[in-house]
Design a protein around this nucleic acid. Structure first.
Lengths: 336, 336
DNA sequence: CTGAAAGCGCTTACAG
DNA sequence: CTGAAAGCGCTTACAG
C-alpha cells in the first residue's frame, strides 16, 4: 500500500480511501491509484483490514464435506452475501476434522457471526459459543436463548407426505429414521405426531434407518426376507430412500406398483435417469437467504445483539415423482 | 491476551510464548496461563497472528462446490495438513462465484501457498498468480515454468481400461468426451493415443459427451435410436457413465451383456446398490498428500521458491465391477 | 525464565 | 481533498 501510494504520488491514507470506496478522493486521483495498484499487482491484505477495522468484515460458515445438502446451502449463502459488505469464511467438518475444531477456527478469524449448517453438537455447547459470537443455526432447531435458527417445517412436510399417501389409499406407512443426523429426532417426532393426527395410529411404524444407500438396501432386504414389506415407506433422507428403492427392485418388488417410497431433502443425487424419487424438499436457497439475513441483523449496530433470537420455520414442498402410486391392498404379487 | 496476562500475573509475551509452544516458560506458569485463558474464553486471533508472523501460517485451497471429487480431495488435504503447523483456508467456486474471485480472496488472506483443485482458468492466468504466490495445481496439469502440479495418469489408466475391454473381446470402443471439464482435453488425447497404440484404430470412436447423467441418458437414447450402439463405452466421468447406463437399460439394452460401460473417477455416487460401475479411479488421498507436500516444500525456507516446479503423475487403478463383460459380437438381441 | 518495545499492513480519527 | 499519527492483537528480537 505504501508502494502504491509512493508510485501514485499520494499519501497512504488516500490509497485506503480509494480501496474502501470512501468519499474523499478526486475522480482523477482515484483512477490513478487504481491503475498503479493494478500495475504493481497490489492485493489488499484481509488480515490487516479485519484487525484494524472497527466492525467485522466477515461471516463464518461451518459445513460438512461430501453432503450435497450442505453444498446447496453454501451456494445460496455465496449468492446471498454477494450484495453485502461481508465476505464468507469457510470451515469444513470432515472425517478428520471435528465440528469443534471447525468452529474454533472460525472464532479465531474475527468473524462477526457464525452460520452453522446441520450442527451435530449439543445445544449447550452451541450456547456457550453463541455468548461469544452471534450464531445462526441452519437446518437444526435451537431453543436456547442465544441462538437464531432457520429450519424447514418437518411436521408440515410430513403432513403433506402422509396425506399424499393416504390419498393414494395407503392405510399404513413405515417411517425409516435417521438416529445420527442433525434433524433426525425432529423428523421422527414429526412423523409420530402426524401419524396420530391423520388417524394412521395403527398403521404407523417407525423403524431405525440410517444415512446411506447401503443401509437402505439392507433394510429393504430384511423386509423382503421377513415377508413384511409395507405398502408405503417414508425415508428420513434421500440416500436411504434410494437404497430402499434399489433393494426392493432387485428383489422384484415393484415401486410404485407394490410399494410407494418417499425420500427427504431433494438432493440432486435423486434426479437419476431411471427413477425419479418422490421427495419432501427443503428450500436451500431461502434457508441461505434467511440465515444471512439473521447474521446481518446481528451485525448491524442498530439492532445488534439486543433483541432475542428468532427462529424461522420454512415450508417444505412435496415433489411427487415416480415412486408413489395407488395402494394395491396386497393384491398384486411381490408382497411376501 | 493482555487480559490473560494480567489475570495470570505474567507479561503478554509470556502468554504468547505459551500459546506458540515456544521454549521459555516454566511448567507451572504455562499451566496457569492455559487455565486462565480457558476460563476467560480467550481465543488467539488468527488475523493478528498471520499479520505479525514472519512466515505464513496458512495454505489456501480453491475448490468447486457440489463436486464429490473435490470434496474427497479436501478431506485428504485436511488429513495431510493435520501434522503440520499450517491451517487450511478454503475458498469455494460456485455458480455465483467465479474462480478468479475465489483465488483473489485467498491471495488477500496471507496464504503461503495456493492449492487449486481442477482449475478451469487459462494456464497463463495461473502463471501470473504463481509469480506472486506458490501455486500447486491438483488434477490439472500445468506446463508453465512456475506451477507445481499433481495429476492422475489418464494415459496409463486409459491403457488399462482399453486393454481390459480388448481382453474381453471388444474390438471397438467409443469414448465419450467431456469438453468443459478441467482434465477433459487431456483425457481425450489419452484415449486417442492409447487407441492407436493398442491397435484399436478403426474401432476407436470419440463422441462429445458431457458432465451430467442427463447428457449420458440423451446420448444412450440417440445411440439406440440410430441403431448404432457400440459394444464398449468409456465415459470421461462417472455421471456420464451412470446416465449412459440408465439410458441403455431403460431401452432394454443389457449391460454388460450387450454393452460394456466404464466410468472415470470412482465417485461414491457410483456405489449404487443396483449396479456397481466399472471405473478408472483417482487416488484422492495420495493426490492430497502430494499437494500438501509440494506446498510445504515451497514454504520451507531452505528450498523455497528456488527450485523449478515439479509435476507428478499418479497411477489410476481400474476397479472392475458389474458393467463390463465379454463382447458378444452383436449376436445377442438388444443391438439395434 | 521474564518484561518493555517495535512493527506487521491496514483503518480511523483529526489537523491542514 | 490530502497527510501525519495512533492503534488493532499479536510475534519477535533484545535486554534484564
Amino acid at each position: 500500500m505504501r508502494d502504491v501510494a509512493r508510485e501514485a504520488g499520494v499519501s497512504q491514507s488516500l490509497v485506503s480511501i480509494v480501496f474502501r470506496d470512501a468519499p474523499g478522493a478526486g475522480e482523477q486521483t482515484r483512477e490513478r491509484v487504481l491503475e498503479v495498484a493494478r500495475r504493481l499487482g497490489y492485493v489488499r491484505d484481509e488480515s490487516a483490514r479485519s484487525l484494524r477495522s472497527t466492525r467485522p468484515l466477515s461471516i463464518g460458515v461451518c459445513f460438512r464435506l461430501g453432503r450435497p445438502f450442505h453444498d446447496a446451502v453454501l451456494e445460496g449463502l455465496y449468492r446471498a452475501v454477494a450484495g453485502t459488505p461481508y465476505r464468507l469464511v469457510l470451515s469444513a467438518v470432515s472425517g478428520s476434522r471435528a465440528e469443534e475444531a471447525a468452529l474454533d477456527d472460525l472464532e479465531a478469524c474475527r468473524c462477526g457471526a457464525l452460520l452453522v449448517i446441520g450442527s451435530l453438537l449439543e445445544e449447550s455447547e452451541l450456547s456457550v459459543r453463541a455468548r461469544r459470537i452471534p450464531l445462526v443455526s441452519v437446518a437444526r432447531r435451537c431453543d436456547s436463548a442465544e441462538i437464531d435458527w432457520v429450519v424447514s417445517d418437518d411436521e408440515g412436510g410430513m403432513d403433506r407426505a402422509v396425506a399424499h399417501l393416504q390419498g393414494l389409499g395407503h392405510e399404513s406407512v413405515t417411517y425409516l429414521s435417521c438416529p445420527g443426523a442433525s434433524g433426525g429426532e425432529n423428523r421422527e417426532r414429526a412423523f409420530r405426531k402426524v401419524a396420530q393426527r391423520l388417524g394412521l395410529v395403527g398403521g404407523a411404524q417407525v423403524r431405525v434407518g440410517g444415512e446411506s444407500e447401503e443401509e437402505g438396501v439392507r433394510i429393504a432386504e430384511e423386509m423382503v426376507a421377513a415377508g413384511n414389506v409395507p405398502s408405503a415407506i417414508i425415508a428420513s433422507n434421500d440416500s436411504l430412500a434410494l437404497g430402499v428403492l434399489g433393494g426392493l427392485l432387485r428383489h422384484g418388488v415393484g415401486v410404485p406398483e407394490r410399494v410407494s417410497v418417499i425420500g427427504m431433502d431433494d438432493l440432486k443425487a435423486l434426479h437419476r435417469p431411471r427413477v425419479k424419487v418422490t421427495s419432501l424438499c427443503q428450500d436451500t436457497s431461502r434457508l441461505a437467504d434467511l440465515a444471512i439475513g439473521r447474521a446481518l441483523r446481528r451485525l448491524s449496530p442498530a439492532e445488534g445483539r439486543g433483541t432475542r433470537p428468532r427462529g424461522t420455520i420454512l415450508p417444505m414442498s412435496l415433489e411427487v415423482r415416480d415412486t408413489t402410486g395407488p395402494a394395491t391392498l396386497g393384491k398384486l404379487p411381490g408382497g411376501a
